[in-house]
Amino acid sequence: MVTLSPRSRSLAVGYGLGIGGGVLAFLLTLPAALGLALVGVSSTAVLLVVSFVFGQYLPFMGLPLVYFRRIRGMSWVRIRSYLGVRVPSLSELGVVVAGFFTILGLALGTIYLVTQVLGLTPAENSAGQLAQEQSRLIPLFIVASLVVIGPCEETLFRGTVQNRLRESFSAPVAITLTAILFASIHVMALVGGLEAIAVSIGILLVPSFVFGIVYEYTENLVVPALIHGIWNAFIFTSLYISIEFGQEGGAAAVLLSLLG
């Protein structure tokens, strides 16, 4: 029987949970969508809500909770403490604001470097494509960014994966490994050639590093969850405004490559 070192075990468990969450999201969402189709439900809005439940809440929040309760035997109080779920203080809300503007500045700089200097084109995000094609759904995406995507993805990646890695690795290593996994797992939502997908994954490292650093600094999961949700909501809001003013191909469309 092979005995793993503490670092190898942390890496295997952390990455296993992160990848497992992505796989589980696919395995749960596909049959749910097929089931709706079989009963004649064709509303895109309904399909989206179902995808948020089966593709976000159950795999990204449910899987970690099962792991903590069943595998590690933690109480609900202990889980909350381990994740660092608490109401943000005023200083932590300041970190939320600073984090958002840091991502914005770095994102714009990165996109300019990639598209204008290097001449590369990022892949399109499937959610972004849908939002552009059916702009009436954008308000739903904005709300979901804040109450579904931000909380669920941060619970899995920062709260679970990064925390598990942090038990055996230094903060820089844990943050980097988590950022790479977080960006890479989005390959399932990207549409385009291999080069374009690789470019998008590289760009997504920008917000991912900020989420990880902020979580390490505050030890409060709500802080990166808020930044994550506000960032995605900002992108969708920018897209909605650009469409309303007839600028569908403007800067907001480029920002879609940074949807976390």
Rank of each mutant, 00 (worst) to 15 (best):
V96T: 07
V96P: 05
V97A: 06
A98H: 08
A98G: 10
A98T: 10
A98N: 08
G99Y: 00
F100P: 01
T102L: 13
T102P: 09
T102E: 09
I103N: 00
L104S: 09
L104D: 09
L104E: 10
A107F: 03
L108Y: 13
G109P: 02
T110K: 11
Y112K: 14
Y112C: 11
Y112A: 14
L113Y: 10
V114L: 07
Q116K: 14
Q116F: 14
V117L: 12
V117W: 10
L118Y: 06
G119E: 04
G119Q: 05
L120V: 08
T121S: 14
P122R: 05
A123P: 01
E124L: 11
S126Y: 15
A127C: 09
A127L: 11
A127M: 10
A127S: 12
L130I: 12
Q132M: 14
Q134D: 14
Q134C: 11
S135Y: 14
R136V: 15
L137M: 01
L137H: 00
I138K: 09
L140G: 05
I142M: 08
I142D: 04
I142S: 02
V143R: 05
V143E: 04
A144H: 04
S145A: 08
S145M: 04
V147D: 04
V148S: 13
V148C: 11
V148F: 12
G150E: 02
P151K: 01
C152A: 14
E153A: 01
E153I: 01
E153W: 00
T155V: 10
T155W: 07
L156T: 05
F157Q: 13
R158N: 03
R158G: 02
G159M: 00
G159Y: 00
T160R: 06
T160L: 05
V161K: 00
Q162E: 08
Q162I: 06
N163F: 14
E167V: 09
S168G: 05
S170E: 12
S170Q: 09
A171C: 12
A171G: 13
P172A: 02
V173Q: 07
V173L: 09
V173R: 08
A174S: 10
A174D: 06
L177P: 02
L177N: 04
T178W: 07
A179M: 06
A179T: 06
A179L: 03
A183I: 02
A183F: 01
S184V: 13
I185T: 07
V187T: 15
M188F: 15
A189N: 15
L190S: 12
L190A: 13
G192L: 05
G193K: 09
L194E: 15
L194A: 15
A196C: 11
A198D: 09
I201V: 10
I203A: 15
I203N: 15
I203R: 15
I203W: 13
L204S: 04
L204F: 03
L204Y: 01
L205M: 09
P207A: 01
P207T: 00
S208E: 05
V210K: 04
V210N: 04
F211C: 00
Y215T: 02
Y215H: 03
Y217N: 13
E219Y: 12
E219F: 13
N220D: 03
N220R: 05
N220E: 04
